[in-house]
């Protein structure tokens, strides 16, 4: 009975919102992280273009908490009329698998637009004896649990990246979690851990010689690091990066979702914006909504596999 009422209510709301007069009121982009973070900066970067296109006020609202779950839940429970849009990173996908007990279901959200995919690279301490990923993997296989890889936290994307790499290449490492990427990076620089999976933003430390970049978890080499090979070149089928995307409540009318898609696509595929994103290591290949949904589903499967193999433990 409840479901029928809910479905009826959804139909009513849906018919009330017409795509041609969307948005009829202020649109809020909910960022489940604090102001000043990467995700927040991307949301604010596109806010003016959306405002101009829609002729409505567009607000970026930061709703941090519980590893991005507070903001995700907020949008999942909002009216499905496209006035509250979630812009988030990898947490919304990984927490679905890693935190099954929280009162949030990724299925309550509809993935609309994929801004892009960040790239990760394996960085090692400056005095690490090996430079080639093949040698490192061989050594790690011979010495299971001895390679010390740091991460910005349990279940954070650098941790997942390291586990995925270990899974693909077939070795075990010692995971050393930190609270945030800054302190973990500092311990790589100081040589207290062997290395970590890090975003392309650590390129500044590669240039200054404070760390060594070993390999890139992307399809292609990055222009800022022309000498650093990809894992694929070295025969390891490993591509990983956090996924920045926009989500709306699942019952949002498709016409509204299409308009949001079109507006975001127009706002982001401006040469300067794309160049800036690419410089930060973001792969901004255009993807349809269906492709984005497929990517999310694929990520979920990958994570479930890691859980099944005991590499990740859900809470």
């Amino acid at each position: 009975m409840k479901k029928i009422v809910a479905a009826l209510a959804a139909c009513l709301v849906a018919s009330a919102v017409q795509a041609e007069d969307y948005p009829a009121e202020t649109v809020t982009i909910v960022v489940p992280y604090s102001a000043g973070g990467v995700t927040d900066s991307y949301a604010r970067m596109i806010q003016p273009a959306l405002q101009e296109r829609w002729g409505q006020t567009v607000i970026v609202e930061n709703k941090p908490g519980s590893g991005s779950m507070v903001g995700a839940m907020d949008v999942a429970r909002a009216d499905p009329d496209g006035t509250r849009i979630l812009m988030t990173a990898y947490g919304v996908i990984s927490n679905e698998v890693l935190m099954p007990d929280i009162p949030f279901d990724l299925a309550d959200l509809s993935p609309v637009y994929m801004l892009g995919r960040g790239s990760n690279m394996l960085i090692m301490r400056p005095d690490y004896p090996m430079d080639d990923i093949t040698d490192i993997v061989a050594w790690a296989k011979e010495h299971p649990g001895e390679l010390k890889l740091a991460s910005s936290g349990v279940g954070a994307s650098p941790h997942i990246a390291a586990e995925l790499l270990a899974n693909v290449a077939g070795f075990d490492f010692l995971h050393i979690p930190y609270q945030g990427s800054a302190p973990s990076r500092l311990d790589v620089i100081a040589g207290r851990v062997d290395g970590m999976m890090d975003g392309i933003s650590s390129v500044a430390y590669v240039e200054s010689g404070d760390i060594k970049a070993i390999a890139l978890a992307a399809e292609e080499r990055h222009p800022s690091l022309p000498d650093v090979p990809t894992f694929k070149e070295k025969g390891i089928d490993f591509v990983f990066g956090t996924i920045f995307g926009f989500y709306v409540p699942k019952d949002t009318p498709q016409e509204v979702q299409d308009e949001i898609f079109a507006a975001l696509d127009a706002a982001l595929h401006v040469p300067e914006t794309e160049a800036l994103l690419n410089k930060q290591g973001m792969d901004t290949t255009r993807r349809t909504q269906a492709e984005f949904q497929e990517i999310v589903a694929k990520e979920l499967d990958q994570l479930k596999e890691l859980v099944a193999k005991g590499r990740l433990t859900p809470q």
Binding site: G36, G37, V38, D40, S41, S202, V203, A204, S208
Partner: peptide
Amino acid sequence: AIILGVLIIHGIEPGP
């Protein structure tokens, strides 16, 4: 971290 965010937004990679 927020103050460093200013640098990132203006295309300056924080670092040594």
